[in-house]
Nucleic acid binder design. Structure first.
Lengths: 216, 216
DNA sequence: AGTTTTCCTGACCAATTGGTCAAGGGAAAA
DNA sequence: TTTTCCCTTGACCAATTGGTCAGGAAAACT
């Protein structure tokens, strides 16, 4: 996979500040464009325009469209998986899960483009990160599902299918990023940003909490 | 908007069986392609190939790419809104909501392409159905949210924000269509189709049921 | 049957797309 | 200051894209 940019001939050189700055500008622009139009719908010209540079200049840093796409996916991947990794068997089940929901929701609010990028990739059949889904992601989910299963076995949580519970959390939280336009359209001018986020959080917390809280 | 196909000159003629059949083939193919790549990422050649006809032939029925897109969106819209319309104030709250969840989940299973088509459209900023979202959809959601609010006021349901509850239901059910690839990847070969659908249904029903069931 | 209308296709076109390249302008090491 | 690389660009290219058109093949009407 190399170093993202500068896969050009000759040995690997030190990274210039210009290089560093431009690659970041490009990746930011690429996130913007790819997260809206997907790999196929996005054009290099468009990314270059958003990044404020000429197309050949952009292609100097990333030789092919696919390279940019790959780089921006990888860049966002870790950030996206972090919240689930933080779910700890040691903590109190309800606290842990609520915290996970809240963290994920915050990510959707603060980084909606990352959410949409993955959504686009997956909806197009995950041509690039398919292996990651089946490998790293599956392993992580299986691990945390086991943690939840442990809580259930210990009688600290209602018996629910852990995998599908995780799917529910993903779906509900990412919905606010992926379908942002629809959410706004339906809520109308009524709800101001922060307010509608707070309501979402309250609703999710409440339903999940009551929905899976341990035996009365 | 006209008659979808044959907006060609002259007065509107009767629809041939050939016409009817071909338009359906085209719309099926268009659903397949647009739901995967979105408006911009899809190509007319590709749709024609899936429909099993030449590009000029396809363009004989729909003169522009946008026309096909619009037609396939409209064709799917009603079907997509039906489940929510069926939610009735007259019924028992929990029964109604569970039934809605189940219906939506079945739609995701039986017509995942429709789900992905709308997801794509919305994620790309809803350039085509923006007005529908703010008009018809908002009106429908507001109406049903009022129904739910009524149940809450009557003490038959835990107090939750009705709009966000509806979002939760959309998100969780459509997730199985939109992120199908991811779901399969994470569940691995373990779960066979029908089995994993049944588990999803059970999990959603349970969490929503316990999550919002009226005061004990 | 013959005539009219619909259907279908190969050839074609302009615009856009991903990508290359030679050569000039700058930054930084010597 | 000089030299060496790094950076940037306009011009260019082949392939793909959305879309047109003239004319032949097949239906449909009479």
């Amino acid at each position: 996979m190399a170093d993202a940019g500068i896969a050009r001939a000759g040995r690997t050189r030190r990274r210039t500040r210009i290089q560093e700055a431009n690659e970041e500008r490009i990746l930011d622009a690429a996130l913007e464009v790819f997260s809206t139009y997907g790999l196929r719908g996005a054009t290099v010209d468009q990314i270059a325009a958003v990044a404020g540079m000429t197309k050949p200049n952009l292609l100097y840093y990333f030789r092919r469209k696919d390279d940019i796409y790959l780089a921006v996916l990888q860049r966002t991947l870790d950030m996206w998986l972090t919240p689930l990794e933080a779910l700890s068997a040691a903590g109190d089940p309800m606290t842990e899960i609520t915290a996970y929901v809240d963290r994920k929701l915050e990510m959707s609010r603060d980084n909606p483009k990352a959410s949409r990028l993955f959504a686009m990739e997956v909806m197009q059949g995950a041509p690039v990160i398919d292996a990651v889904l089946k490998g790293r992601l599956k392993a992580l989910v299986d691990e945390k599902a086991a943690v939840i299963a442990g809580w259930i076995k210990a009688g600290r949580l209602q018996p629910v299918d852990p995998h599908h519970l995780i799917f529910m959390i993903w779906a509900t939280t990412q919905h606010y990023a992926d379908f942002d336009v629809q959410v706004r359209a339906v809520l109308g001018g009524v709800a101001r940003e922060s307010l509608h986020f707070e309501r979402a959080r309250a609703t999710l917390d409440q339903v999940f909490l009551k929905g899976i809280k341990g035996p009365v």
